[in-house]
């Protein structure tokens, strides 16, 4: 493990190709009610139903390990929805159905035998608006390890909390007031606290849904720097509104438009030489 980490730091380009998650032919429908059925048949059925919103249409994406993958696209294009497909957060929305195949290290995460609770421990998530629990800073970070039973004793837990806060680059700011409520922090600090909270369960993939959209430029810069750091350990997927941000932090970029994945590839290529005219229009600001 240690060797792998060192290697990834010295030679990031080679690590990019280690496949972490894979999505094939993913469709997402809203307003499907309690309908069930065979996966293939259901997708066709739902797609034909006028009352059902077809939010994601046949998307294929590969998420590589130790890479930042950015999802970009205009509002309502389905990028956030697709992000929530990756840790089955859509399960909590009534009437939402996902078809197709999504794997994490080769295992189908939509298999009926998979417990979404276990999955989400491996695929953590950070949300658009900082959402610290109304608890102390310590308890916020300790929440995940506690429910998953990751620590054997108190000292251990304190250790995990400190490490997570350090990793989220907020330790120095809060180390003296771990008992203060998390809601009392500034917006940027709250968001880094939420990242620390997500990191504390030692996930393999970290999903970030527009993590900077409610932050000011300085806080945004801090979080972006943090994302770049996190890449050394986790596979990070970030949804962003800002193309500059995607260009700054990501190695891979996926462009979504009207529920379709229009283009997916190396960030450099997407921003300099997009192959699809729609991507170009978006990047140059003509649609959006």
């Amino acid at each position: 493990m240690k060797d792998l980490n060192e290697m990834s730091q010295t030679d990031q380009e080679s690590a990019v190709d280690v496949l972490k998650m894979q999505a094939r032919g993913v469709d997402v429908f809203y307003g499907a009610g309690g309908r069930t059925g065979s996966a293939a048949g259901m997708a066709a059925d739902l797609a034909a139903d006028k009352n059902v919103t077809h939010a994601i249409k046949g998307v294929d994406v590969d998420i590589a390990d130790k890479t930042v993958t950015a999802f970009i696209g205009p509002s309502g294009c389905g990028k956030s929805t697709f992000l929530r497909v990756l840790n089955r957060m859509n399960d909590t929305i009534e009437g939402c159905r996902v078809t197709g195949k999504v794997t994490l290290e080769g295992e189908d995460i939509y298999d009926p035998n998979v417990d979404p609770v276990q999955l989400r421990a491996k695929v953590g998530m950070v949300f658009q608006k900082p959402n610290p629990f109304p608890k102390s800073i310590f308890d916020n970070v300790a929440y995940g390890p506690r429910i998953h039973g990751l620590s054997s004793n108190k000292a251990d837990l304190a250790d995990i909390v400190e490490r997570s806060l350090r990793r989220a680059a907020i330790w120095n700011e809060v180390k003296d007031r771990l008992d203060a409520p998390g809601t009392g922090l500034s917006g940027g600090q709250q968001q880094r606290l939420c990242i620390a909270r997500a990191v504390a369960t030692s996930p393999e993939v970290l999903l970030m849904d527009e993590p900077c959209s409610s932050l000011d430029p300085i806080a945004t810069a801090q979080v972006e720097e943090l994302i770049d750091d996190l890449r050394s350990r986790y596979s990070v997927v970030i949804v962003t509104h800002s193309m500059q941000q995607a260009a700054r932090v990501s190695q891979k970029t996926a462009f979504f438009h009207l529920g379709n994945l229009v283009e997916f590839g190396d960030t450099d290529k997407i921003f300099t030489n997009p192959s699809d005219p729609r991507t170009e229009s978006y990047i140059t600001g003509r649609i959006g």
Binding site: N87, M89, T92, V117, Q118, L119, R120, A121, K122, G124, M125, V126, F127, K129, N131, P132, F133, P134, K135, Y143, G144, I147, H148, C194, R197, A198, T201, L207
Partner: peptide
Amino acid sequence: PQSLRDGSYGLGATQSETVKQVVLPA
């Protein structure tokens, strides 16, 4: 707010854990 629930689910908490440890205290 739903965001608190999402935060908890996103960490892999079950629904009852979310209710007991996040929703009810809030």
